[in-house]
Design a protein around this nucleic acid. Sequence first.
DNA 1: ATTAATTTTCAATAAGTTTTGAAAATTCAA
DNA 2: TTGAATTTTCAAAACTTATTGAAAATTAAT
Lengths: 168, 168
Amino acid sequence: MKLTEAKAQFISSWGAFGTHWGINRTMAQIHALLLISPDPITQDDIMEQLNISRGNVNMNTRDLIDWGLVDRVLIPGERKEFFSAEKDIWKVATQIIKERKKRELDPMLKLLTQLEKIDGDKKDAATKQFIDTVAGIRKFGGQADKMLDVMIKADESWFLGNILKFFK
Amino acid sequence: MKLTEAKAQFISSWGAFGTHWGINRTMAQIHALLLISPDPITQDDIMEQLNISRGNVNMNTRDLIDWGLVDRVLIPGERKEFFSAEKDIWKVATQIIKERKKRELDPMLKLLTQLEKIDGDKKDAATKQFIDTVAGIRKFGGQADKMLDVMIKADESWFLGNILKFFK
DNA sequence: ATTAATTTTCAATAAGTTTTGAAAATTCAA
DNA sequence: TTGAATTTTCAAAACTTATTGAAAATTAAT
């Protein structure tokens, strides 16, 4: 397979993959393009390579920056802004985990903790099932939360070295 | 907070939460409703409680069944079909992991393995960055894959007992 | 200060996804 | 069998989300 074809495949698949992970297709495609670009590139480069409008590039690069996955880079002597993605995949993964935990898991756990405090008779089947379900999810989520915190703080070699021992 | 209000909150939040995880809102809401129902319920019960059409209930319960999260239950003497959700949250989580791994991670790893075999000069910066990026993601994904396999096979008490030791 | 280059915004529109509801298919009791 | 109850299907409509593109804002060189 030739590079051009492989690049196109990678960008398109990474885009489709992103949609399963709560990231929109274009944002994931821009991310993919930046991941395989050895040097920083401009808005115009992205527009041209992905065939999308300036506004679209602008919005999605901004989101990528908010997610902490992409940086604006200033190149001396150049008027335009350049963009560059973090290439270390471990850092990319921990950054995504960190953001999603903050945006999704933490608020959910907060809500579940509230819902558990419902007033009602535990002998009533509906009440009991509600409390048990909410408590079960909250407990499980709490464990996941702790685990992800450690992962975020850990560094890759430590993590992989130990996780492999753990998982036989 | 009263049970009725708490239920509504839980269903609505679980629905919103689901959309971040590639599951559609209604499917997640039906799942939530089933999780807090002590006994199996019918299509009509779901239609009434969530204010959605029969077709919608039918499609989404079918998807939940495909995901292995919900079962059809036949109640002797009843003409209608009843639905019931797996209540053990550990089983729910491992089932979701199993399905998503099969649907998303495995095909992605297969593709990356292909893309790594690109023909081209490793001294060319673009080629080198492409291969490095793809290889990095493939390697990371491979570790995640192994880890999830162990998790899927493990049983909850074993897992939580050990993970706590591992994560200090 | 003026102007040209560049980036940002956002209303309009396009594309994609979900939901409805009624007709078709299926199931089961009599 | 027949027909009433129930489930399934799927085209059309409603809703949601993403994209465009041109105008406004910003930036930086002269």
